[in-house]
Amino acid sequence: MLSPEEKHEIDEELKHLPYKESAAIDALKIVQNHRGWVTDEALDDVGEYLDMSPDALDSIATFYNLIFRKPVGEHVIRICDSVSCYLTGYENLRDAITKKLGIKLGGTTEDNKFTFLPIQCLGTCDHAPAMMIDDELYRDLTPEKLDEIFAQYK
């Protein structure tokens, strides 16, 4: 069942859209905001609300890498592996994070604090390499800066 808040937020989106289906991506993001990730149950709930089959909705959900169909940790780290970052030290950075958190790309820490994912370009090539934790962007990174950054998420 969608919560009243979820329904309300989806209704807000629907106001701007010609077809119910057009709200699919936003609705999935809203549900993800509330629940952390999109469960099978959430697909059924949203599908029912937007008159879409869970299949159609899942097709959208699985296409976008910012919509999670598996549980993620409290914070999601997205490290850019696109050209500029690759050239300016993405690999060192990746390995440093792996070492620090004990998880590889795609993994979640045991305490469920962090999930570590790759992303294609954060739009900040002039300050490569870059990563994003939740909605916060970190630029001009070096492995040395990581301790300080992660300290904020204790």
Partner: peptide, 9 residues
């Protein structure tokens, strides 16, 4: 039909 879809990328 409604129950056959393309998933992922």
């Amino acid at each position: 039909g409604g129950d056959l879809q393309a998933f992922a990328a």
